[in-house]
C-alpha cells in the first residue's frame, strides 16, 4: 500500500473518483430529463415527435460510448469549436457530460417506455374522460406511475453510467481510470494492489447503490 501512502498519489486517486462522481451526477440529471422527454415523444400521437424519439434511441443506443465521447471532443470541440469552459479539464468534463447524457438518455427513454406499458389503459382513459389534455394525462397520470415502476431498472442504468464515466478519461480528463493508468506506469511492482483498490472503490460505491434502488423500488411501487 506504499503507493497510496504517498500524498500526491492519494490526492490523484481521490480527485479521480471525485470526477467520476461529478460526471455521474450531472449526466444522471440530464439523462433523466432528456430520457423522460424522449419517452413522452415516443408515446405521443405526433408522428414527427415519435420519429425523433425513435431516431435518438436507435442512434445512441447502438453506437459505442467511446465513439460518442470521441465525437464530443473531436467533433463538437476540435472541429466545430464548441468550447464549454476556459479550463481544459472543465471543458473536457462538460464534453464528457454531453456524451454520457445523450447516450444514457436513450436507455432511460426505453426504460420509461416499458414502464408506460405497465400502466393500465383505464388510467389514461379516466384522465381523458375528466377532460385532461394528452400532455396533462401523460404528465399527471401516466408518467408518475410509469417511472415508479422502473425505479429498479433506473438503478441499473445509473450503475452502468457511473462505470461508463471512466470513458471520459480517453479525452484527457484525469478521472479514476486515467489516474490508475498513471499509477500503474509509475509503480510496476504494485500492479495487482492498485487494480484491487480501484475496483474495490467502484464496488464500494455501487453495491449500496444497487440495494438502495431495490429498496426504493419497493417503497415507491404503486399498489393496485
Amino acid at each position: 500500500m506504499h503507493v497510496f501512502a504517498d500524498p500526491t498519489n492519494f490526492d490523484a486517486y481521490l480527485s479521480g473518483f471525485l470526477w467520476i462522481l461529478k460526471l455521474t451526477g450531472a449526466s444522471a440529471v440530464f439523462a433523466l430529463v432528456i430520457g423522460v422527454l424522449l419517452a413522452a415523444m415516443r408515446v405521443s400521437p405526433v408522428p414527427v415527435l415519435r420519429g425523433f424519439g425513435a431516431a435518438w434511441v436507435n442512434i445512441f443506443r447502438n453506437t459505442p460510448l467511446t465513439l460518442v465521447v470521441f465525437f464530443c471532443y473531436f467533433g463538437l470541440f476540435s472541429t466545430l469549436g464548441l468550447s464549454l469552459a476556459e479550463d481544459l479539464n472543465l471543458n473536457n468534463y462538460w464534453l464528457g457530460v454531453i456524451g454520457l447524457s445523450v447516450y444514457t438518455a436513450a436507455f432511460v427513454c426505453e426504460a420509461v417506455r416499458s414502464g408506460v406499458n405497465t400502466v393500465p389503459t383505464g388510467q389514461a382513459e379516466a384522465a381523458r374522460a375528466l377532460g385532461l389534455t394528452f400532455a396533462q394525462t401523460l404528465r399527471i397520470v401516466v408518467l408518475p406511475q410509469a417511472t415508479r415502476s422502473v425505479v429498479a431498472p433506473f438503478g441499473s442504468i445509473l450503475i452502468a453510467l457511473c462505470k461508463n464515466a471512466t470513458i471520459v478519461g480517453t479525452i484527457g480528463l484525469m478521472e479514476s481510470s486515467n489516474v490508475m493508468k498513471d499509477l500503474l506506469n509509475a509503480n510496476g511492482d504494485a500492479v495487482i494492489p492498485i487494480f484491487l483498490v480501484f475496483a474495490g472503490t467502484f464496488a464500494a460505491l455501487l453495491i449500496p447503490t444497487g440495494y438502495f434502488f431495490g429498496w426504493l423500488a419497493n417503497r415507491l411501487a404503486v399498489k393496485r
Partner: peptide
C-alpha cells in the same frame, strides 16, 4: 364517466 374497473388514479 364511471367505468367497470373504477380506474381511480392508483398513485
Amino acid at each position: 364517466m364511471v367505468f367497470q374497473s373504477f380506474n381511480l388514479f392508483a398513485h
